[in-house]
Computed example of a mutant assay.
Amino acid sequence: MLNINNLNKQFESRMRLGIMSVLLVNDWVDFSEMKDLLSITDGNLASHSAALEKAEYIEVKKEFVGKKPKTSYRVTNLGRKAFEEHLALLEKLINPK
C-alpha cells in the first residue's frame, strides 16, 4: 500500500531536492555553480549539503586551487539509490496505476 509517510524525509526540502537533482545529472559540481543553479545563499547551501553529507547521500570535496578554497559535491551510490526510490514513490503517489 502506498503511503506518503514512506517518502524520504531527507528530501522534504526543495533545496535538497534541487541539490540531488543537479548531482544526479552531473559528476562533480562546485559550490559556486550549485549556488547559481539553485539561487540559494551560501548558508543555505552549506547547511543542506551538510545534512545530505551526514546521511551519506553526497560526497563533499574541499581543496585549494592556487590559494583559493574550492568545495565540490557529487552524489554517492547510496544517495543515488535513495533519491531514485524517493522519485519512484512520488510517481506512484501521483499516478497509482
Rank of each mutant, 00 (worst) to 15 (best):
M1E: 12
M1F: 08
I4N: 07
I4A: 09
N5S: 05
N6A: 14
K9W: 01
F11M: 08
E12D: 10
M15W: 11
M15I: 11
L17S: 07
G18D: 11
G18P: 14
M20D: 03
S21E: 11
V22P: 12
V22S: 05
L24K: 11
L24Q: 11
V25T: 05
V25W: 03
W28I: 03
V29H: 11
V29W: 02
F31Y: 07
K35F: 11
S39G: 15
S39L: 13
S39Q: 10
I40V: 14
I40Q: 05
D42Q: 15
L45C: 01
H48L: 02
A50R: 10
A51M: 08
A51S: 11
L52S: 06
L52D: 06
L52G: 02
E56N: 09
K62F: 02
F64K: 13
F64I: 03
G66Y: 07
G66Q: 10
K68W: 03
P69R: 10
K70P: 04
T71A: 09
T71L: 12
T71Q: 12
V75C: 15
V75E: 03
L78E: 07
R80D: 07
A82H: 06
E84T: 13
H86R: 09
L87C: 09
A88D: 12
L89D: 08
L89G: 07
L93T: 01
I94P: 00
N95R: 10
N95V: 08
K97A: 10
